[in-house]
């Protein structure tokens, strides 16, 4: 039995998504990992995810990248705040997962109650273990 049913990665970087999918699989953290990397119809995808029942594939952890084309992670968060709030209320944990070590972004993420933490890429074993422990 994997600890998290579903993990959602919102990131445009294909390589990064591949890497994280790989290590989540290796650590047997989750049954299913899916990614949103086509940001053009993000709203539809998010809406779809949010409509899913608990029993189905609604994510229990969401990782959100910051540096993406068109909109930054924070802009996406603001744009679809109602969906993210909803997901958070339904028990999803949310993390900012980014390659930038930017103080401003760190502070910004602290401003959101629904964001559980600010993580720098790549995810390390220590964090994976924490996730395992808490789940």
């Amino acid at each position: 039995m994997r600890k998290f049913k579903h993990i959602l990665l919102i990131d445009d970087d294909h390589a990064s998504n591949y890497y994280h999918q790989y290590i989540f699989n290796q650590s047997e953290l989750s049954e299913n990992i899916y990614t949103v990397d086509n940001l053009d119809n993000l709203s539809l995808q998010l809406d779809h995810i949010n409509q899913l029942n608990e029993e189905e594939i609604r994510p229990s952890i969401i990782f959100l990248d910051v540096n993406m084309p068109k909109y930054t992670g924070f802009e996406i968060l603001e744009k679809y705040i109602h969906i993210f709030t909803d997901l958070s209320n339904k028990g999803a944990q949310m993390y900012v997962l980014t390659s930038s070590n930017n103080q401003r972004d760190k502070l910004k993420s602290k401003g959101y109650e629904m964001i559980n933490g600010y993580l720098e890429k790549p995810l390390n074993d220590q964090f994976i273990n924490v996730l395992k422990g808490i789940s």
Partner: peptide
């Protein structure tokens, strides 16, 4: 909404 942002460094609007 992007008419000014496009001049920012490393700002892209599209996937690679």
């Amino acid at each position: 909404e992007f008419k000014e942002k496009i001049f920012l460094l490393f700002k892209r609007l599209h996937l690679k």
